[in-house]
Design a protein around this nucleic acid. Sequence first.
DNA 1: TATTGTTATACTCTATAACTATA
DNA 2: TATAGTTATAGAGTATAACAATA
Lengths: 156, 156
Amino acid sequence: MGQNMMAAGDNDDAIRLGPLEDLVGYHMRRASAVVGADFARAVSGTGMRQVLVGILSIIAANPGINQGMVGRALNIQRANMVSLVNELVDAGLVTREVSAEDRRAFTFTLTDRGRTTLDDALVRIRDHEERLLGSMSAQERATLLDLLSRIEARGD
Amino acid sequence: MGQNMMAAGDNDDAIRLGPLEDLVGYHMRRASAVVGADFARAVSGTGMRQVLVGILSIIAANPGINQGMVGRALNIQRANMVSLVNELVDAGLVTREVSAEDRRAFTFTLTDRGRTTLDDALVRIRDHEERLLGSMSAQERATLLDLLSRIEARGD
DNA sequence: TATTGTTATACTCTATAACTATA
DNA sequence: TATAGTTATAGAGTATAACAATA
């Protein structure tokens, strides 16, 4: 017991992480929170959020895609897609049309405004990632993307 | 058309990620979600969650630490610490005492049951990480921890 | 005056079940 | 019967402001 001599409330910046130290899950959670917070700062005032940029990006890369496909691509539940899509349609960023092949489904396309909003967001996001990953070489960033992708792939 | 016989995830892979493809934030978010979901599966039935294991670990590694210090170590707001700590105390995993040095503060110690619960959770968690990271060499895991830690450090 | 912990509150994200309209 | 989208709801996680007790 002799090793913990400091009083609670001392200038103890040296809080030990203990078992958390080498847990990938813990560090992933913390790093993801840091990225998310900086992302929010980067796009603040634009009405964008991580999930909305995700949806706009998927629609941009797959014009005419329907709601269910977008949700599956991003792992968003059907029920939770509804209000997200409503936000984008109400903001005039996305047009929603009944699918010609399946009248149960909606297909999406970006409006000009949606395209502009996404492009602006992407400029801010690339800047934010540059800031956050500034200390990493291109090699290290590629390695990070590769390692993260391999973990993602375990989620099937 | 009778062509819809593929399992979920088969042909949906043809959906392009577009701008998301090379965004670290996107892949971090997805990988973190995969880890979190598998974590939940690993400890299901034990009453543990990522945040509770975090608090127990910090207390275990820093006996006598107070509530504010735990919150700062894990980046949990003061207001949100209250119910989390109540959960742990009510479950008999942690004892809460008024600090001898500062009567505004509470100091925490793990009970025997808290120690056992944490140890059991850690066995499950190490197993879960082994499963999730099974394809990575020790070198790769170390690299991942290093890269994540460097991003974490940008959050100060 | 500042800090520790508390209460109240609110918003986002996530998850599930039940419903409708099409297929 | 199965699927696309909807509604309702509930539990986590997170954030802020105001308060009492103590420093």
